[in-house]
């Protein structure tokens, strides 16, 4: 599963970890995050993320 990086603040979404702050369980691929999910650091939307090289 691919990691995604926030273009605004640099936060990296790691699917292995998920995002406990928004009840996203470990093992959730980025593509399956709900559209309402936002960057837990700066609040940017899903569109502001790019796959990490």
């Amino acid at each position: 599963m691919k990691k995604y990086k926030c273009n605004v603040c640099g936060y990296v979404y790691d699917p292995e970890v998920g995002d406990p702050s928004q009840n996203i369980p470990p093992g959730t691929p980025f593509e399956q995050l709900p559209d309402s999910w936002t960057c837990p650091v700066c609040g940017a939307s899903k569109d502001d993320f790019s796959p990490e090289e």
Partner: peptide, 9 residues
């Protein structure tokens, strides 16, 4: 030392 979001990107 980059400090993104302390307190701007």
């Amino acid at each position: 030392i980059e400090t993104p979001m302390i307190h701007w990107p």
